[in-house]
Design a binder for these strands. Sequence first.
DNA 1: ACATATTAATTTGCATGCAAAGTATTTGCA
DNA 2: TGCAAATACTTTGCATGCAAATTAATATGT
Lengths: 144, 144
Amino acid sequence: MSFNQLKLKNQLCHRLYMASNSIVRAYREPLNGLNITYTQYIVMMALWEQDKITIAELLEKTAIDGGAMTQILKKMADKRLLEIIKDEKDKRKRLVQLTKQGQALKLEAVNIPNEIGYKFESIDSEQAVKLRQLLDLVVSDLRV
Amino acid sequence: MSFNQLKLKNQLCHRLYMASNSIVRAYREPLNGLNITYTQYIVMMALWEQDKITIAELLEKTAIDGGAMTQILKKMADKRLLEIIKDEKDKRKRLVQLTKQGQALKLEAVNIPNEIGYKFESIDSEQAVKLRQLLDLVVSDLRV
DNA sequence: ACATATTAATTTGCATGCAAAGTATTTGCA
DNA sequence: TGCAAATACTTTGCATGCAAATTAATATGT
């Protein structure tokens, strides 16, 4: 009930806001080399893990907004990174499938996690695990 | 160097992305009552803490994008939450000052941190402190 | 003093995130 | 069988985040 909780320096949420923006900004330059944005990179990672999945599955894996996803996939298809295929069994669904070019991009991306990782000078791997766990709690607690 | 690092479930950054989006989404409803967005709420918190500061200082405190800030302040001025005043000493600068209405909004906002806090069922205050510390490391490591 | 560099903001163009409304399809049930 | 409800997406309108270009004003060095 205290006004102290309204101070920015006490706010977990503002930290999260800053940290997330910082990360996206940090990825921008490495990803420029691949000609994709951070959000598109998330889509690629999901597809490198499991290809030819429905848009709904992609939304589930990536947690990207559905409305944005439509636009993003369209752009990525324009760039010939992937193709959007109709599911003949259920015509409501669409399958997303990487092109050869999209698959090949994985080789160019393999060092990006390290490029970013090197920047975390003051976070060792144990702390990274801890942070990941705590963030998972945040996400699951806020999940409706 | 491993492809395993490209898996979404191993990615600290994707966690951060999801957590940050979750938080902003969680604030949306409580803030609807105050008729402000999360970003505008950050501006308000900064000004409740210290009023009549320059836009540059506000940018520093909030870590909001400068380009966005111009637009945001314009909207908030339209809503009569604050006023943008010219600094007579240095005509490049502008000062942001809360209106009575903007100051009064603090009373309506005082419970919002708790409303959000209650949602974190599985994070105790010790873990929250730890998370905050780790996020600060992320931000400082990524600071240019 | 004067030209140049720097600082403070604004503007612009592009990429999302989000909620809400709209469009097909498919499911479920009476 | 037939129709309402649920699904899977798409579209739309608004609010940012970010980089780059622009404008206005002040600080600096010679």
